[in-house]
Amino acid sequence: MRAFIITVILLAVLLGTVTVNHVYIKEVFHNMETALDELPDVLASDCLEKTLALENYWEKQVDPVSLSVSYTIVDRICEHAATLVACAECGDLYGYRTALALLRDAIGDMMRFETPSIGALL
């Protein structure tokens, strides 16, 4: 009976952790997506400031996100965010657009593996 009670508590903790984690990842995804949407397609004067803000925001989320998201995806986001900042800084439009697309793809993967769907489950 004691083992059963402990298991019920564990189930509650597990469901709680999974729910909180899901909500958190979803929030990070939406914030990142919004920040990416706000970035212009062409290199404007406020581009560097916005990309730096985006990179700073992501750097603050890396540790908690790494608890449940594959390090490969986390590393990809870090890498593309850094490339985005570098390209905005030196005015490389081609590199900037490529990094932007890859970063969108990487945060999409982060959310895809967190959302229960046929694709993610299989």
């Binding site: 597990l14 952790t17 984690n21 899901h22 593996f113 959302t115 229960p116 993610a120 489950l121």
Partner: peptide
């Protein structure tokens, strides 16, 4: 985590 949980159930 959600996917891992459901995957474990399926497996």
């Amino acid at each position: 985590m959600t996917t891992i949980l459901i995957r474990t159930l399926i497996i």
